[in-house]
Amino acid sequence: MPKSRVLAVAVSVVATLSLAACGSPSAPQTSAPPTPSATATAAAPMPAVPSLSRSEIAALPAAVYDAVIPGLLPAPAEPIAAPAACRVMFDAPLFAADFSTPVARIPATDFRGQRTVVVPVRIDGPWALVLTPARQVLPSQVAAGEPAAPAQTAAWMPAASLSGKKTLATSVRISVAAQTLSILDAAGTVTDSWSVGVGTDETPTPTGVTGYLQARYTDADQGQPEHPIQLTSLHATAADEPFGGSDGGLIGIHYFEQSSGAVSHGCVRLPAAAIDAVNALPLGSLVVIED
């Protein structure tokens, strides 16, 4: 994918939870926690959100597309239930698994100056577990024998910082093996599907992971003056910068004339009809990438 400046981008979702509303959660969820390290024990009440001043929040690193923040969590490995996306109303702190250590902040606006969209995958008392657009670790920093760098990260944030609930009625499923992209309705039924281009063996598209559409824009300098680049929250796991630029190793969904085969640096290349269909989906729509 051509990348001359800021670039970001790119999972089948099984709904197992239900979010009452962004920023106004009801009783804590009683379903099993997504990961042992990402939540408090079932018997213990959720702790209160620590109070931070504006200056303390501003001093935290921003969890954006090219940031590497060790305190973030790998996204839950289990199927993610996220029937809604929300907006961040003001810079909000992100906390580690202990619910007390602030590790980053989600800016109220993204690099386009638009309101940041996040996807809460769990609401528990005053807390929301959200997917984040930053990395936890670079692939080059992972020692042999250790788990690969996660393609998607998560963190806990104050649920009260979220607003503008938008129900997600559709999602995107990408099969790397079949080299297809499908759009699914709320029932999980495929409504449309296309053949697409995926990553090569040397620069693979990550699989077994769920992210979301976080932003979109057109850019003539990147060869995309007409069809918006779809920016996701996912990152490459085999190389820090597969394209050799400074885009944070983001996995993108974008138009390209050659849109079939294992041909990309990890992004997903779509024909015009497919990118137009993805562009019609609301931001926050989940993107599931399978083997």
Rank of each mutant, 00 (worst) to 15 (best):
I251S: 04
G164E: 14
W127S: 09
P36M: 00
S182W: 07
P74S: 12
T39F: 13
V68I: 04
P70R: 06
D247W: 05
P242C: 06
S12I: 11
A27Q: 07
T101E: 13
S55Y: 07
A215M: 01
P47I: 08
D110A: 01
N279Y: 10
V117I: 15
F99P: 00
L286W: 13
K3H: 10
S31D: 15
L250Y: 00
Y212W: 09
A63I: 06
L131I: 13
V209M: 03
A38Q: 07
G248E: 01
K165I: 15
S246P: 00
A82I: 09
S171N: 13
T203D: 08
A10R: 12
A43Y: 04
R269C: 00
T41E: 11
P282C: 12
A273W: 00
D201K: 14
A108V: 00
L231Q: 15
L60Y: 10
R105S: 06
V130N: 01
I229L: 14
A178G: 04
H235N: 10
F95R: 02
S264V: 11
A178E: 15
P25F: 05
A280H: 05
P150R: 02
P126N: 07
G261R: 02
V88G: 07
T189F: 08
A238S: 14
T180L: 13
I251C: 02
D124H: 15
W194L: 11
I106D: 03
A238V: 05
Q224N: 11
P93E: 04
D291Q: 07
L168A: 04
A85Q: 07
T232M: 06
A144N: 08
I251F: 00
S12K: 13
T191V: 14
G211E: 00
L162Q: 08
D291H: 03
V209L: 03
A96F: 09
T210H: 05
G248Q: 06
C22H: 10
P74Q: 01
L286G: 14
D98Y: 08
Q29L: 05
S31G: 12
A10C: 14
A21P: 02
E257A: 07
G188T: 10
G188S: 09
S285I: 04
W194V: 12
G252A: 12
V64H: 02
G164C: 06
A43K: 03
W127K: 02
E146D: 15
S51A: 13
G197H: 04
V119R: 02
A143L: 07
V64P: 00
F95W: 02
L181S: 12
L19R: 07
C22D: 10
P36K: 01
Y255W: 15
D201R: 15
A44C: 06
L7D: 08
D91L: 13
A59K: 09
Q179A: 08
T109K: 10
T207D: 05
L129P: 11
V119S: 03
L231T: 14
C22N: 05
A239L: 15
T30I: 11
E226Y: 15
P228Y: 04
D66L: 01
A48L: 11
V118F: 09
L73Y: 06
S195D: 10
A85Y: 05
V130R: 01
A149R: 03
I289L: 13
S163F: 13
A220C: 10
A280L: 06
V13H: 08
T218N: 09
E202K: 09
D276S: 13
R122S: 09
A148M: 14
E257K: 09
V11P: 12
P158A: 08
A82E: 06
Q152G: 00
